[in-house]
Amino acid sequence: MIRIGTVSSIWRYPVKGMAGESLTRADIGSMGVSGDRILAVQDVARQEIQSCKFRPELLQCRCKAVDNAETVEILFPDGEVKLSSDRDVNDKISQLVGHKSKLQSLRPKSDSKFYQRFKRDDHSWLTELKATFAREPGEPLPDLDNLPDEMQTYVSLLGTFFLVSPFHIITTASLKHMRSIHPGPDWNVERFRPNLIIETLPEISGLAEQEWLGRSLVIGDVTVKLGEAAPRCGAVVRKQQGFSEDRSILRSIVRDAHQNLGVYGDILAEGAIHAGDQIYLV
């Protein structure tokens, strides 16, 4: 095992698509951080679970889990705070995103209809999906024309509100690398919605986590297998509480990082992690 750094911070996002909360300790299970993506916003007309790709206004809300993750507290951009259990919370969300919406809890994997994509026809859904990546003429897209059948049919992994994987990782080395190339913007880590930020050792540089794909991280009792790089969409440029919109960030990621920043992980061994824990590469 090679020591690569420490846990800088841990993040969870109790409502899919909304900004989340920073933790100093978290229980990590097969579905990632406990309390992560326990709710999602459903478009009532489309009968479809929404993400910040399609409803970027959700990013202007900040949420945190309360009451042992039984309830979620949502701070709206106008400063109003509501609980997920409040009777008028769906009206508030609908007003924000401009579409009649409601919060939904996870349902069993067997309820596959709940997770289906809205498809008006065979082609418009893919056109909509490509548009969320906010590419300019000449910029490459991820290979969306050859998505696995499950990703074409469903908006998330069945039984979850995760698109690809329950755990997302980014290193300070990568953020430092991108700042060195494009120093003007605010490379606030919240733009990239990681679960784990690794404070890498000083000698580690570049897009470090991209070089570790296929290997595993060990953090105490927790083991995470690093699976795929994370292609970036238009959500990373959007305004959130604390920073403004900046489209140049996505231009730089597409140009200078092969359109990827951060990696997805799968949990091989469960346990608890803490800020400051040592991290080893296997």
Rank of each mutant, 00 (worst) to 15 (best):
F192N: 00
M31V: 13
T171P: 04
P183F: 04
D91E: 12
W125C: 06
S110A: 15
I253S: 05
V218T: 15
V89I: 14
Y264K: 07
D86W: 10
G17V: 08
D91P: 05
A235P: 02
K225Q: 06
S180I: 00
I197A: 13
D122Q: 14
V155R: 10
D91V: 09
Q240N: 00
D186Y: 12
I204M: 05
M151N: 12
G29V: 09
G5H: 01
Q60H: 06
E139S: 10
K100L: 15
R191K: 03
L268R: 04
D277V: 09
L59M: 13
L158T: 11
G242H: 02
G20C: 03
A235Q: 02
I204W: 05
F167L: 10
M18C: 14
L58E: 11
I198S: 06
I38M: 12
S110F: 03
A229I: 12
P14V: 06
Q60A: 15
V81G: 03
V15D: 04
I279D: 00
R87N: 08
V155W: 06
Q116M: 10
S205D: 09
D67F: 07
D143G: 11
D145F: 06
D256N: 14
G262F: 01
S252W: 02
L207I: 15
V218W: 02
Q50D: 00
S110T: 15
S30N: 06
L201K: 12
L58R: 14
R179S: 15
Y115D: 09
D122N: 15
S94A: 13
N195S: 09
L163K: 10
L141Y: 14
R62P: 05
P140H: 08
